[in-house]
């Protein structure tokens, strides 16, 4: 269960967002520059809201009364738009970098069908493969919340469909709250248990 009620002043508007979610897939949908990525950064702890509350499964990650829990201690998986794979490490090392349990990580690798990539470097694999590696790397940390920032935007249609299916399958298996940011309406409709429309920092 995730409770979010945050306010943050940005350059051209104020981000004001509040929602509660269970182990479902929530899609933050809106045009670019509407505060979607900033929301994810606030949740992950990479940046802090000006005020508000973030509570994940009863653990207060951010509130006005206490020091925010640092990013490293939040246990939140984050898949970046360009995947942000470590270019100097093999796929295997990427996935094991923050893995809680190596065996479990290899199970995730099997689920995503990327065993054959383990010894390869990220610069030598396709976009869809990078996407799967980034997902595996995030799931390997056994997060209690997963954030996905436009993870499918640079993939072609067919690969995108496959990745959608895989994400839903992993979500079914792991049962954690997933927040996905996108500006693709079709994708939003397909993946979302619930959709939050966001524009200029406000939901409607």
């Amino acid at each position: 269960m995730l409770t979010v009620d945050i306010k943050k002043t940005l350059k051209t508007f104020t981000l004001e967002l509040s929602f509660t979610m269970t182990n479902e897939v929530v899609v933050l949908f809106g045009p670019s520059g509407s505060g979607k990525t900033t929301t994810l950064q606030c949740l992950s702890g990479l940046t802090q809201p000006d005020q508000g509350l973030i509570d994940l499964n009863g653990r207060v990650l951010f509130s006005n009364r206490q020091k925010p829990v640092p990013v490293q201690k939040r246990g939140i998986g984050y898949v970046f738009q360009d995947y942000a794979l470590f270019p100097h490490m093999t796929v295997k090392k990427n996935i094991l970098y923050g893995a809680k349990n190596a065996d479990e990580a290899m199970n995730i690798v099997d689920t995503l069908g990327i065993q054959h990539l383990l010894e390869v470097y990220p610069n030598n694999i396709s976009g869809g493969e990078k996407q799967r590696v980034a997902l595996a790397r995030a799931f390997a940390t056994e997060p209690s919340l997963l954030l996905l920032d436009e993870p499918f935007s640079s993939l072609d249609e067919q690969v995108k469909q496959e990745c959608h299916r895989e994400l839903l399958r992993l979500h079914q298996k792991w049962q954690i709250p997933v927040i996905l940011v996108t500006h693709d309406y079709e994708e939003a409709e397909k993946l979302a248990d619930r959709m939050i429309h966001i524009n200029k920092g406000r939901s409607r």
Binding site: Q72, Y78, G98
Partner: peptide, 16 residues
């Protein structure tokens, strides 16, 4: 010279 998010990714994975 490299993508800043690579470091952010490592931080979200629990690295000091």
């Amino acid at each position: 010279n490299y993508d800043r998010n690579v470091e952010n990714a490592a931080l979200t994975m629990g690295a000091s």
